[in-house]
Simulated scan of single mutants.
Amino acid sequence: MLAVLNFKNLVDFEQQKQFLADLSQATVDVDLKIAPTLPVPNTYDNFEVVSQNLTIKQRTVGEISPSVLQSLGITTSFIGHLERRKSLNEGLLIVRKRLENALENNITPILSVGQYSNIDMVVEELGILLKDEPITKPIIIAYESLASTEMGRALYSIDEIRDIHDAIRKFMKTNYPEISYQLILGGHMDEAGSPIANAIGYDGVLIGDRYHTLAAFQPVLDVLNKLSR
């Protein structure tokens, strides 16, 4: 099982680094990826450091380039995280440009969808992002209930996240059978939601910044470890 833990800008960076240090001493059986707000060297043995963002190919200021990630040993990056897209008004065209840059530089994308909870619109959003992109290596698709993330509680039903799961699987099988991908679920995921996502058929979960210390995260980690054994 895959788990992606994504810190946000309001979490103190020293606290994030302490979390990583503590986690490096913990038992981690799940395929765990951690995205601090600023990339740090990917040198840990029991989890992978990933990036929260990747720039477009054109010259920009203040964004993270593939060469920065490569120098840190980072090979995975979020592309168009939903909260970035909403707060910074990033349209799908910009996200497509980020995806293109990732693919050209062997960066595995974590491609976020779910800006709108309507099933048809989720599939349409995914189709726009993948259209005409030459994808020959594995990718990660993250469906996130944006409202649940923003409100801090699960606002979706089991039927809803099952229907989303089935729709995305059907779309990928019909239109992109050649793409190897993992599908993960986000939106207030915890030790209760993770087994539900696993039972539905998601390959993993996306977890936000509710857990600032290993002690707080440990109950979730224990469940994730059990699901992965």
Rank of each mutant, 00 (worst) to 15 (best):
D190V: 10
V49M: 06
V30R: 04
D222P: 00
G73H: 07
A102Q: 02
Y143V: 04
T136F: 10
L92C: 06
G193A: 12
I79S: 11
I207W: 01
I128A: 09
I207Q: 02
V223A: 08
V68M: 13
L69R: 02
G186V: 04
L129T: 10
T174C: 01
I196L: 14
R59A: 12
L99E: 02
Y176N: 11
G186S: 10
F13N: 11
R59M: 13
I64Y: 11
L88H: 14
V11R: 06
E48Q: 14
H188C: 14
P66R: 01
A215D: 15
I139L: 11
Q16C: 09
G208M: 03
Q115R: 06
V30A: 12
T27F: 02
L38K: 12
Q58N: 06
R85F: 12
S148E: 03
L54K: 06
V205K: 04
E191M: 11
V4N: 03
T108N: 06
L20V: 04
T75V: 09
H165C: 13
I168K: 03
I94Y: 13
L155N: 13
G80M: 08
F171G: 04
G62S: 09
P134K: 04
E133M: 15
D203E: 07
G114I: 05
S24E: 12
N46Q: 07
S148W: 01
K17P: 04
F217I: 07
V40F: 05
L111W: 01
L92G: 07
P66K: 03
T108D: 00
T43V: 15
N9C: 12
P138R: 14
Q25S: 11
F217K: 03
N9G: 06
N46E: 05
D159S: 11
A197G: 07
Y143D: 05
D163F: 07
